[in-house]
Amino acid sequence: MASVKLQCVSKWFARRDGDSLHVLQNVDLNVPEKSITAIVGASGSGKSTLLNIIAGLVQPDRGCVFLNGVKASDFKDWGSMTYMFQEDRLLPWRTAARNVAFGLEAQGVKRAERKERVAETLALVGLDQFADSYPHELSGGMRSRVALARSLVTRPTMMLMDEPFSKLDPTIRSQMHTEVLRIAELMSMTIVFVTHDVEEAVVLAKQIVVLNPRPGRVRETRTVDLSYPRDPAAPEVHEQARSLRASL
């Protein structure tokens, strides 16, 4: 069970000059469980803020957030949710394995079990050979995989990602897409992710939410009815991407 529902969410940020900046206006969002939702929109349209509100890192000024049908303020099971940033944010003083273990340390998982789950998750992302490497000894793609493993090691049912692969070059990014789809299926995860890249949205998402900037409002919510796996070179994918780009 992992669904998200936002009702009429609004957010203002205080600006240094005393004014307030209206970042989100009456945003409604419905993410059914085990689905993949993409949030797209111009820079500054409040995509990251929206994701942070879902993650409970930012409080909305108006409106309600429901996680698994429970009001966010009463929600307890934060361990079932995971957040991936645009950067990998690997701790340079920890090896790959210990970076992955970081995700489990807050949950008080015992050392022996931690070890086992870290090894299992590193294998899942294909990095079991590099458990003892430090981040600076890994390539960009490998670092992304470690960050992914750190997010997955807690066995989340909901994954939030803020432009997670935008720093990777296209081939590796598309490898990561395949990886994420495979793992999402395997772990029956619900995913909400933010992206600048319309192809990425079309290849991964079932539902695409387009935000209008200043203040951020939902302009349109569209459904991509293509079966997985989707070939980025397929004409249907191209067509969907073209039409999405046109609406941006």
Partner: peptide
């Protein structure tokens, strides 16, 4: 600050 934010997404305590 990014690392502190990361710790927050895992709901780590201040001591952690």
């Amino acid at each position: 600050a990014d690392f502190v934010e990361l710790a927050q997404t895992f709901r780590m305590s201040r001591a952690q």
